[in-house]
Design a binder for these strands. Structure first.
Lengths: 126, 126
DNA sequence: TCCTTTGTTCAATGATCCTTGAACTATTGA
DNA sequence: TCAATAGTTCAAGGATCATTGAACAAAGGA
């Protein structure tokens, strides 16, 4: 990483890099959970079910560097959001298909998540 | 690999495995080229622009084991085809979005391919 | 000011990945 | 039978990956 919190510009997001970033169960789960939280930003701490603090930091950085998520400092926390628009512009339909298909992926046993996991088949985009 | 030419059943195709398989420039190129060849099967030899014989054998095995392509012996050759229907059933819309987006990916300087690369934006599915 | 919360950085470890070249197998055609 | 074709297998190499624990940094609240 060249600079703390580096984010690639939208045009620089590379398909192989995004695929590699998502080709990991932990990172795919992060994306699935983020997606099901709508536009609400989430903190790294909300993903501790998926791994240790250190491991999460590593995976979140991978997703950020690949251009999949945006990370913005907020006090002592970091707020994570999906780069939905950038991804849709660059790779139309891709993120939607991933999110629908990641439905069968291991999700934390969390009541809020459990609700989201059973959400209707329709997913809103943009 | 348990057996020569092992192919996972459609239901066993895993999203992280497919994403990992496609998260490599060479393999993504193989898929893009296969896709642009319609239903016509292609041999490994037709991809030698992308790497050595040994490297191709390695990458083709990865794609096959992930469930992305089907490989069928035919004389001394192997015929490769995309598992379009299985992928579409398992991950709706995914392959289509990949193929559209892989358009900007490095393609061989081959007249036949050059034609395909400029094909109209419409892609037929099933 | 001190402590807590939140997350990062570092070095180490083992695993997996991709590429090579050399040797090999299997099928086909002469 | 012999040779050519098409692809695989193997071992070795270096590179990258994912996980760990310990140490660190930055912001906020008491």
């Amino acid at each position: 990483m060249t600079h703390p919190l580096f984010h690639p510009d939208a045009e620089e997001i590379s398909l192989p890099a995004v695929l590699t970033a998502l080709g990991d169960e932990t990172r795919l789960s992060i994306i699935a959970i983020l997606a099901r939280n709508g536009e609400r930003a989430m903190t790294c701490g909300e993903f501790l079910q998926l791994g240790s603090k250190t491991a999460l930091s590593y995976h979140v950085a991978k997703l950020r560097e690949a251009g999949v998520i945006n990370v913005r400092p907020d006090g002592t926390k970091r707020l994570l959001t999906l780069r939905r628009i950038d991804l849709e512009t660059r790779f139309p339909g891709f993120l939607a298909s991933i999110i629908i298909s990641a439905g069968t992926v291991r999700l934390p046993e969390n009541p809020i998540m459990a609700d989201a996991a059973e959400a209707p088949g329709e997913t809103e985009w943009t």
